[in-house]
Design a protein around this nucleic acid. Structure first.
Lengths: 217, 217
DNA sequence: CGACGGGTTGAGCTACCTCAACCCTGGTGG
DNA sequence: CCACCAGGGTTGAGGTAGCTCAACCCGTCG
């Protein structure tokens, strides 16, 4: 954990906490953006829609992640709780006042935003170039790496989101996601335990799969 | 043009200019990131690769755009000149020194990075949910809107990138891109003039196409 | 215990890919 | 100034990954 990040983390300690039930929106796309959020626990889906309802999830935010880090006048995405979620909220003006006292805070936020940008570009790579198997492998490995960074188990992966969420994230359909999970299970790469969690049995093969250097029949 | 942005623009006036020929790389993914760039003229493609050479272009940068705005230790993408390109370059340490004097500069950079994030997320929407026709319409409209923002003609669109670049940007193949251009031409939406430019004849239909509210046979 | 929502599986379809031939254009050199 | 060439772009024919639609399964909750 870099100094920048820890400074950002301390900043939330005295902020009010807001709660959202599963399915509730924290903000809608094009809403005025008044606050910066840090997720205490739970999970958000961040998504875009087309006119006919097609949905692209552009990211998930879990405990420790920020939302609204762009500081724009209006929200660029919809933000919706996947499960009951609590988040620290700080008004943008409050944050900007803190920045005046401590300019490093803005650098920390900038770093967080850079990470989000890298994730969005990696997602474009996944959707645009990877096959359904490569994409799902990338998704699972991504969650494992996030767990590792947070000091959680990188073998047991919790999946708060539904199959539809995963499909709308990877640009696939629910059927293809389900079939691909089954295929991974049959190849001994993962174990599907409870409905919303899995065990990784062979991360090395998943990593080769996501890079396109391994294939399964 | 917001004050933040104009402040960012003035900052480059005294910076050294570097030149790159078509196909030359300004930086490679994972290179140490030493500088911040502003494109004086020309164009860059920003891209990721998979192990077997599949390429996802995650953005194009044209005159007035920044590169390296993430200020990370290492470059997150490859950056390659599409055509002969000149760019202002400023070392990160120089930029950070300027920021100490004028903290607003960092806010301006943050805003630019937010714009990049929004573009990357919109790209994910395009690749993940839009059909080839909707995707190409979104691409053309995106270029037209950029031109409008820069005070250029939004009817005459210059396409410095090849069909392969467009395909690798939209997650399609060169054949599909070419066929879709032809279809748009046959429907009177665009005129294909020179090889690397086009005229928009019916932007309203293109906009409805990209939102999924109109179809062409 | 029944109903419901999410997940899995199967059968058939189609949008887009693959591969290959052809065309066009701009650049080069005779 | 023209002939040639190379590389990008277009078009066609056939194949296939992943979609659609529908049936079924299973765990949860009233």
């Amino acid at each position: 954990m870099t100094p920048l990040r820890s400074r950002l983390q301390n900043m939330w300690m005295c902020c009010p906490i807001r709660q959202f039930g599963a399915g509730q929106h924290v903000f809608h796309s094009n809403d005025e953006q008044t606050h910066l959020y840090s997720i205490a626990n739970g999970a958000l889906r961040l998504y875009h829609n087309l006119a006919d309802g097609r949905r692209q999830i552009v990211g998930f935010a879990f405990a420790g992640d920020l939302a609204g880090a762009d500081l724009q006048a209006r929200h660029q995405t919809n933000g919706q709780a996947i499960v009951p979620t609590r988040l620290y909220s700080m008004s943008k003006s409050m944050f900007l006042r803190l920045v005046v006292e401590n300019p490093k805070l803005l650098l920390g936020l900038h770093e967080a935003l850079s990470t989000e940008l890298a994730a969005a570009q990696e997602l474009a790579l996944t959707i645009g170039q990877r096959s359904s198997e490569e994409a799902l492998a990338a998704f699972i490995v991504g969650l494992a790496r996030r767990n590792a960074r947070q000091g959680l188990s990188c073998a047991v992966i919790s999946l708060p989101m539904s199959r539809r969420d995963i499909a709308d994230y990877l640009g696939l359909t629910i059927g293809t996601v389900s079939r691909t999970f089954t295929k991974f299970k049959n190849h001994g790469l993962i174990e599907l335990t409870k409905r919303r969690s899995l065990h990784i049995l062979d991360i090395a093969t998943l990593e080769r799969l996501m890079e396109g250097t391994e294939w399964i029949r």
